[in-house]
Simulated assay, not measured.
Amino acid sequence: MLNGFSKSVELVINGQVDATINDTATFLDYVKNKPDAPVKMAARDGEKHYSAAMLKKDDAEVAERISKALEELKKEGKLKEISMKYFGEDVSQ
């Protein structure tokens, strides 16, 4: 996804387009890696956006283990810590 976002941001920077629409995490990762890029986030829609992992069909045990691990990481504050490290803000909420 980031590769497509990088290309769309380059079009914005070059003046070929006026804007691009993407998710917050992708934008935050981009500006963290390119802090001098002449771009800014113009708006947020305020809605939650979800990510998912692909699993084998009917593999409830793995899904349960992943859910449990994510819940533990959230309780321990690790998801927020990881978000802050890689995105500069908490994208885990």
Rank of each mutant, 00 (worst) to 15 (best):
L2K: 02
L2V: 09
L2Y: 10
N3C: 08
G4A: 08
F5D: 05
S6N: 11
S6R: 06
S6W: 03
K7P: 02
V9F: 14
E10W: 13
E10G: 14
L11W: 12
L11S: 14
V12C: 11
N14T: 15
V17Q: 09
V17E: 10
D18Q: 11
D18R: 04
A19M: 07
T20G: 04
T20S: 11
T20P: 11
I21N: 13
N22I: 12
N22F: 08
D23M: 01
D23K: 05
T24E: 15
T24W: 12
A25N: 05
A25Y: 02
T26M: 01
T26L: 01
F27I: 00
F27N: 00
L28H: 01
L28Y: 04
D29C: 02
D29G: 04
D29S: 03
D29E: 08
Y30M: 00
N33T: 14
N33W: 09
N33C: 11
N33K: 11
P35H: 04
D36W: 04
D36G: 01
A37I: 03
P38L: 00
M41S: 04
A42S: 15
A42Y: 14
R44E: 15
D45S: 11
D45T: 13
D45M: 09
E47G: 11
K48N: 12
H49I: 06
H49S: 08
H49V: 12
Y50E: 04
Y50Q: 04
A53N: 10
A53V: 12
A53F: 13
A53T: 08
M54H: 06
L55W: 05
L55V: 05
K56R: 10
K56I: 10
K57S: 15
D58T: 15
A60N: 06
A60Y: 05
A60E: 13
E61A: 15
E61Q: 12
V62A: 02
R65M: 03
I66N: 06
I66K: 05
S67M: 10
K68Y: 01
K68R: 06
A69F: 14
E71D: 09
E71F: 07
E72C: 03
E72M: 05
L73H: 09
L73P: 03
K74S: 08
K75H: 06
E76S: 13
E76F: 04
G77L: 00
G77R: 06
K80Y: 09
K80R: 09
E81H: 05
E81L: 02
E81W: 04
I82L: 15
S83P: 13
M84G: 06
K85N: 09
Y86G: 00
Y86N: 03
F87M: 06
F87E: 05
E89R: 07
S92H: 04
S92Y: 02
S92W: 00
S92L: 03
Q93F: 03
Q93D: 10
Q93G: 14
Q93K: 00
